[in-house]
Design a protein around this nucleic acid. Structure first.
Lengths: 336, 336
DNA sequence: GTGAAAGCGCTAACAC
DNA sequence: GTGTTAGCGCTTTCAC
């Protein structure tokens, strides 16, 4: 700030060469004579020179930065996806600028605007909602890939998702195989992902001839949502022996509701979640779940984006990864 | 990218005015005649003009950006601190650029370098380790505040922390008040924060005349660490009736170890953690803990940083917040 | 191999 | 009020 940082010019002066040679030395060391190179480097070190990204981006007309919008930083799965994104992005010589979304659509669109003003070369959006400001990106402004939003396809964006319908079926099938028939579903609300999971649940129930047993209780993708929905389920006369909860966070809430209700998991009622958040693996939770390959989804998103940046005319790609069942301690064979 | 974005010049041409008037119109609308203003705005809208942050930062010689380094994005408390930081930073008209640290010190220093190259006006570091690249920041390069690292003081940086020693005493006192005497401590490793919490534990035990009962078992700030440490504790002949675990994540691991050991919480052994992570409040966990005011720590850090940016000569400040006890379901009066 | 000069998009005096 | 003119720090032809 105050003692404004040394510039390429200062380095040049100190090394007794021209600005452009310093610039060259920084980017193509092999095209500069060894002697000058060392003296330039010495000067740079002595001065504590650090390139100014703003100036370089301006001259380059590119930023080597990709923007990441995380809608729900509080859901632990976000961290895992982010880690995957970062690893891959870094490996490609880019770096990430991460902003968080929020319930406030205006704020969220503002964040996206900022990212765009910073000339990010691409955008990765992690979350279930369609961000307000994403329209701009969609309008061909900036390559964008959406993680975990299945309807992205219809908007012409690249996307990475897991097959929610198929995953939900896996959940039901697992329960079915354990002998459960009265299987309830706690929903994740009215967003696309939640709807798909519900669809998978219903489809699986139907295909097992359990149409009459279909029972959905309204929840949300939060601890609280799972808790409330499960209380509803337990209060019904249906005597569910198993519950498929829309996501892991909600499933943890479900466990609490069940305990409060005086029943045991999995002896009295089995519970299966969805997502595969690391915390579900915590020994004191031991949640059976349908796990999304979170880190690779992040990495794949980065790959897809980088490809698209390389070739903007490339048609949008949709990677739909298969989730997998992880059996832990909250599901068991039906007891009666 | 390809169809390079419209610039201020394009807007000027379309509106039939000069570049500088457009620039003025964007920043001080009231100093431009209404007629021109509207026509400029119309032109900007029509063109889909968006200011180029790189150009502006270069000309302004400031970025209105503050960099945030999060060392452990996987610890859920990070998200809460980040939220606090973001809210406050945004409210001040700045925005944040967030990068994640990692075990790899070189990568971490690289991330800090990037932030610095981007001309961030300040740095907030969230985590327990002293990042390699922080030296540069310390050398007066860039105002920096450290969250959760008590030794920051000696390095001349601003810092926000909670009083770990005092918090640990609170934990022990709570247990003591419940009648516990054989209180074990699962440590968080050898970092400063863990050491302080251990110090507080020992001090409290001493002051209660329980010096002979002091028993520390080696753990870490992770689920796994708490799990292993607790198994050690339970295997000892000390018959601990209560355990103070170095942080919440580890405490959750402790719960698992205790369950595996065939004991109940809190009937057979009480457990108290530290941090106040939101997940500890999840009903199926209900962890008693010493809660740090995470969101306000983030907000305070942002405030401190902004102040320092405003007045770089300001002496470093250290805000040491008092944590508070949150009693939930994992502690109860000693039974025998 | 090296340097001079132009320009990236924007801001900020400074004149008109 | 409004336009002109210099840069901000860096990259990049293009001659030498």
């Amino acid at each position: 700030m105050a003692p404004s940082r040394p510039t390429i010019k200062d380095v040049a002066a100190r090394a007794g060469v021209s600005k452009s040679l310093v610039s060259l030395a920084m980017r193509a060391p092999d095209r500069v004579s060894p002697a000058r190179l060392t003296s330039i480097r010495a000067a740079a070190d002595a001065l504590g020179y650090r390139p100014n990204a703003a100036a370089r981006n301006l001259a380059d007309r590119r930023s080597f930065t990709i923007g990441v919008l995380v809608q729900d930083l509080h859901n632990p799965i976000s961290a895992e996806v982010i880690a995957g994104v970062q690893r891959q992005v870094r490996a490609s010589g880019y770096h990430t600028m991460l902003v968080t979304g929020s319930a406030d659509a205006d704020l969220e669109r503002g964040e996206i605007e900022k990212l765009l003003e910073f000339q990010v070369e691409g955008l990765i959006i992690i979350g279930h909602r369609m961000p307000a400001g994403a329209r701009a990106a969609i309008d061909g402004e900036c390559p964008t890939v959406i993680i975990s939003r299945a309807e992205a396809g219809i908007m012409g964006l690249d996307s990475i998702s897991n097959d929610d319908v198929s995953g939900a079926r896996m959940a039901v099938n697992h329960l079915y195989d354990l002998g459960h028939r009265r299987i309830a579903h706690i929903t994740g609300g009215s967003n696309q992902v939640a709807l798909l999971r519900r669809t998978g649940y219903e489809a699986a129930m139907n295909s097992h001839g359990l149409t009459a047993n279909i029972a959905c209780y309204e929840g949300a993708f939060t601890d609280e949502g799972g808790y409330r929905g499960t209380h509803l389920a337990l209060a019904s006369p249906n005597e569910h022996s198993a519950i498929f909860v829309a996501n892991d966070l909600a499933a943890v809430g479900a466990l609490a509701a069940i305990a409060e209700n005086g029943r045991r998991v999995p002896e009295d009622v089995s519970v299966i979640g969805y997502d595969g958040m690391a915390l579900g693996a915590l020994r004191s939770i031991g949640l059976t779940t349908i796990a999304q390959p979170l880190a690779s989804m992040g990495a794949d998103a980065a790959d897809l984006l980088l490809q698209r940046i390389g070739d903007p005319s490339r048609p949008p790609g949709h990677v739909n990864l298969e989730p997998r069942l992880i059996t832990r301690n909250t599901t068991s064979a039906v007891s009666r």
